[in-house]
Design a protein around this nucleic acid. Structure first.
Lengths: 90, 90
DNA sequence: TTGTTTCATCGTAATATTGCTATATAGCGT
DNA sequence: ACGCTATATAGCAATATTACGATGAAACAA
């Protein structure tokens, strides 16, 4: 099926699984590691740092942003991403 | 594609992603939580505890065992699972 | 306005995951 | 040997994920 029966589990279990899923890809691990080291970074640098296509990086960034681990602020034509320190406690 | 380009990343990044992926499902979170609380548990109890079919639980247990988070010892006709304390450090 | 740069989104193909039923395997009691 | 119980595995259908090229949208410079 490929569909998860979320109703069988507690909210806490589902949320923990969501967070784990967000980190369940080496590209997203690499993004978070890089942001922790550099503190902030524009998308273009991440595309160069990691070897994936720009569209793919953008997709990974969206997933990380969706659960609040990172946040981005528009800066002219580029977007500056950084770790959300509040969410980075688990 | 659905295929991860693991060659672009470091061994550490791939391993962290593997561990995160193992915990990226509420059923596996629930299994680990239950084993941490009860300390050890036979498969049948987990099938009752979680509401999934026996075959599905067995599949999740195999994934957790594959990366070494849990280990099982055969005990007659049943299998007793417990957390691997060595691997449970991350 | 036109062109350029930077990023997000759409549509897609290839592959992975989830969950089930049906079936196999193994130990134990009789 | 036979049945019973407890797990594991195979095979499948439904859905999710990963990655890309093409395209859209927004800010800026000339």
């Amino acid at each position: 099926m490929g569909v998860t029966k979320t109703n069988l589990f507690t909210t806490e279990q589902n949320e923990l699984a969501q967070i784990a899923k967000a980190m369940a890809h080496p590209a997203r691990i690499a993004i978070v590691q890089h942001l922790l080291k550099i503190n902030q970074c524009i998308t273009g640098d991440l595309v160069l740092e990691i070897g994936l296509a720009q569209a793919t990086i953008s997709q990974h960034l969206r997933e990380l942003k969706a659960i609040g681990i990172i946040q981005g602020s528009i800066e002219g034509t580029s977007v500056n991403y950084c770790i959300n320190p509040v969410k980075w406690e688990e």
